[in-house]
Computed example of a mutant assay.
Amino acid sequence: MCMRYTLTHTEEFVSAFGISCGEIEGRYNIAPTQDAPVLVAEGGAIVCITARWGLVPAWKKDGECGEWLANARAETLAEKAAFFDLVQHSRCIIPASGFYEWKRERGISYPFYFTIPSRPLFGMAGLCDWWTDPESGILKATFTIITCPSNDLVARIHNRMPVILEEDDVTPWLAGPYVPDVLQPYPDARMAILQVSQAVNNPAHEGADCILEAGKSDWW
């Protein structure tokens, strides 16, 4: 599962993905229903667009369903009506610098922040679709983040994690044939974990203090 992530180190966007996404402000608490940059294949090129997190399939009449399609399970992409065609023809990459997961103990949700020290900016695998608001006629891009079973590090906190693509898989994921083998847990030895401030629990709180280290719980 992935319900919050960060997008910082934006000055490395070109070196990480080979394209520019214009001026992007650092963000520390991106949540479902918010807009965020995503990469898509368009006209034979990779481009950066703004999309809403929470997939709304093009055939849906009610846009409110998007909040509940924030994630898509890698194991069942070919079985779900909302994802079946998209995984073949409308894949995307969500640029990120880290993601959060929560551990609930004694009635309290403790947030943890996962990063890749060697990759300050990386890409999470996703699906994208364009939905037309029936009232305004406005076409809106929406996306979902693909998740997989957790590696050993993330599994200490949660049983699922976002699919993080290797650098060599970025272009093939966007423009090549669908290869489900890339939807695997990222190696835990290359990742880092940090217990952080509970400020991130509130999606309205978007400051850099969201990733400040918190005092470890007695069970952690």
Rank of each mutant, 00 (worst) to 15 (best):
E135W: 13
Q184K: 15
P185D: 02
C128E: 06
P120R: 07
G137S: 03
G123C: 03
L121T: 08
Y186D: 06
H158V: 03
P162C: 13
T171Y: 04
D133R: 10
L194V: 14
I94P: 08
E135D: 14
A141W: 01
F143P: 11
R104I: 10
D85G: 07
L121D: 05
K140D: 06
G66W: 09
P162E: 11
D85S: 13
V87Y: 14
W68Y: 12
E75H: 15
Y178S: 06
R106K: 15
M124E: 05
Q184W: 13
K80N: 15
C128N: 05
D152F: 07
I116E: 02
A141Y: 04
I116C: 07
P120G: 02
T132R: 01
L153G: 05
W173L: 08
S118T: 14
E67F: 15
C148N: 05
I193N: 03
P149S: 01
E166A: 12
L194E: 12
P117M: 10
A82P: 09
V154H: 10
L86F: 07
R104L: 11
V179E: 10
P177F: 09
L86T: 07
W173F: 10
F112K: 00
V170M: 06
W173M: 11
V200D: 01
V182L: 14
P120D: 02
V182A: 12
E75L: 13
D152W: 06
A125M: 14
S150Q: 07
I116T: 02
R106S: 13
P149A: 02
W173I: 09
I145H: 04
G137N: 03
